[in-house]
Design a protein around this nucleic acid. Structure first.
Lengths: 212, 212
DNA sequence: ACCTGAACACCGTTCAAGT
DNA sequence: ACCTGAACACCGTTCAAGT
């Protein structure tokens, strides 16, 4: 075959195929990806020069595309924006839970994702956080969202709950499971609300102390 | 050589060596592990029947050993216990940051770690949380600790902060870095405090509503 | 420019063979 | 019981060769 008249591959096609693969198989390898695309593994490197980690970073962008806020709306305060930001991020990840473990070991370099981080910092600073605290708040939200995303994609049972040896844990797991809706989503909402309430209190008392 | 008079290997020796390897190299493979132990790769499977994932779960136990609370002390309330639990967990992981990404994809089955989850549920229920809420609180803390542990072990820079394109993010990163102490630890403390304060408020108003 | 096959240096795991 | 070497079915990546 050698060079075809019109390209068989493109970065976009490769990313789409890798996401499909990850969604159904839980992971991807370059050979499998090539097979899914009807192409030889070495061909991939013409479109994805950074190899496997390049694909992984592309996956981050694909999964987050259009789901993360990058500016304030109306009279949204920092808490409302942070809520929207965290829900967007977590929602994107939870829709493709198996990609999360692939992302955790890699520096964020996708421009769109970074733009939403930039927007979050801007909103926080505008609403009275100093630079260092704003960064900590961003990092706190980032940690919780990432942890929640892992939770959303975790094996059916996160804990090996043995009724004999861990009766209270088992009971609690069963109680939470018997509630309607997605357990992991409910956990996320409880945590996000608590986190923001706690941060808000700290921010207010900090601002009050400064004003005094 | 074949069978030696006294065993060359043991589960403990394998786990210790794998932790060393992960700490210095950031990862481990069965062949490298065998080489470090002066043994052939196939020998490992006699002591670690579950193969690589068995080693990984052993790593969780080794890292957490003796660092997670499994009972209340004095008149500790749930918040104090949860704080101790989260600090112990995060401290264990932060001491060996490279193991964290290995653990995130696997169900927790280490008995000691599970015992501390059991203890946390017990304390929460004793202090008035219903079973389902207690499980959510545990999961929230788990998410945040895991995210924070990933943060602690993340590449020197989590975000590719380009001063030109993301000036506010860069400024905030520099401001946080210029503060004394460990950035990731400070982030964790801010988040843990905020989270527990928020959970406490929700718990109190829930308890008040029940009492009315 | 774009695709290929062959090649390289790895993986994790199994298993018959040795003592 | 415990260790070995050989073997199997994989990896990610490079690169000369083709059009």
């Amino acid at each position: 075959m050698a060079r075809p008249t019109s390209p068989l591959l493109s970065r976009g096609a490769i990313l789409t195929a890798s996401l499909d693969l990850v969604d159904v198989a839980g992971d991807f390898t370059m050979p499998r990806l090539a097979r899914a695309l009807g192409v030889s593994a070495s061909s991939l490197y013409h479109h994805v020069p950074g190899g496997r980690s390049d694909v992984v970073e592309g996956l981050r962008g694909l999964v987050c595309a259009g789901r993360m806020p990058d500016q304030r709306v109306d009279g949204e305060d920092w808490r409302a924006f942070a809520e929207r930001w965290a829900r967007g991020y977590r929602g994107a990840m939870a829709a493709h839970p198996h990609v999360v473990p692939l992302l955790t070991a890699q520096t964020v370099s996708d421009p769109e994702v970074l733009a939403s981080y930039e927007a979050l910092v801007e909103v926080l600073v505008q609403d009275g956080f100093d630079d260092a605290t704003a960064l900590h708040v961003v990092a706190v939200l980032d940690c919780f969202v990432l942890g929640s995303a892992l939770d959303a994609g975790a094996p059916a049972e996160v804990w090996d709950d043995d009724d004999e040896r861990r009766p209270r844990l088992s009971r609690a797991v069963r109680a939470a499971e018997s509630q309607p809706g997605d357990r992991s989503a409910a956990t996320f909402e409880l945590g996000l609300g608590s986190l923001l309430t706690g941060l808000e209190l700290a921010h207010r008392s900090g601002a009050a102390a400064e004003g005094a």
